[in-house]
């Protein structure tokens, strides 16, 4: 276990509405965290801030002892990834979608192929790599999103409502994948969910977001 992400006093408002009001927590690698809370509690906002997609109004996000909340090095940002509830499918093949992060990192072709095949096997899409990604079902799309995140071996993996838009069968499959990658990926996995049972089964720590803070 080692410190990966330390969030302190995170505040964020939209048009005068306070969404986060001093969120603090210390996330460590090798653990799974579930963030619960009612709709509008700020779960997605918290994840988007921590994944450095948005900047907080106040507060600090320390990653590897460096405050990355306002300015950050690309190499540090590339250690953190977020699987959005709407995956954002590129209109290419499933293979190219999964390989996207590796292409950005200029990984060579042979290594890319091996990594993509491994990830596709983990998420059960090995036989669909040549298909156009836009033709996948919702559950398959979500699993492709997971594979896309897995190939870049993140130190911190955020999953925003990973099972919200899929059927029961796909939800179980995704939950199994999350549990499997916990052992192989030495990362802090932080997921937001409404599903109490999923949180109980998959997470080591359950955090509840209320009134803009963890309780």
């Amino acid at each position: 276990m080692g410190l990966t992400l330390n969030v302190s006093g995170l505040k964020k408002s939209y048009a005068g509405t306070v969404v986060l009001d001093g969120c603090s927590y210390r996330f460590e690698s090798g653990s799974v965290y579930a963030i619960m809370g009612p709709n509008g509690a700020g779960k997605s906002t918290f994840l988007r801030l921590c994944a450095l997609l948005e900047r907080p109004d106040e507060g600090k996000i320390d990653f590897l002892d460096e405050d990355v909340s306002l300015e950050h090095d690309l190499s540090l940002r590339r250690c953190i990834t977020l699987l959005l509830p709407a995956v954002g499918v590129f209109n290419t093949s499933v293979y190219e979608n999964i390989a996207y992060g590796l292409k950005l990192r200029k990984v060579n072709k042979a290594e890319t192929e091996e990594t993509v095949l491994n990830a596709a096997e983990i998420v059960g899409l090995k036989d669909k790599l040549r298909r156009r990604a836009v033709t996948l079902s919702s559950g398959e799309t979500q699993r492709m999103g997971l594979a896309r995140a897995l190939v870049i071996s993140p130190s911190v993996l955020f999953l925003d409502e990973p099972t919200a838009a899929v059927d029961a069968g796909s939800s179980i499959a995704i939950e199994e994948i999350i549990q499997n990658i916990t052992h192989t990926l030495n990362a802090a996995i932080i997921l937001s969910t409404h599903d109490r049972e999923l949180a109980d089964r998959a997470a080591d720590v359950i955090l509840t977001l209320r009134n803009g803070r963890f309780s």
Binding site: A51, L53, L74, R77, R78, T81, L82, L83, L84, A86, V87, G88, F90, Y100, G101, L104, R105, R148, A149, I152
Partner: peptide
């Protein structure tokens, strides 16, 4: 849709790379 840019950024794209996506 903006989600494409966000997806690219979450996977480590720079601003230029996300624009190219």
């Amino acid at each position: 849709p903006p989600i494409i840019r966000q997806a690219a950024l979450t996977l480590g794209a720079t601003s230029y790379q996300s624009a190219m996506a």
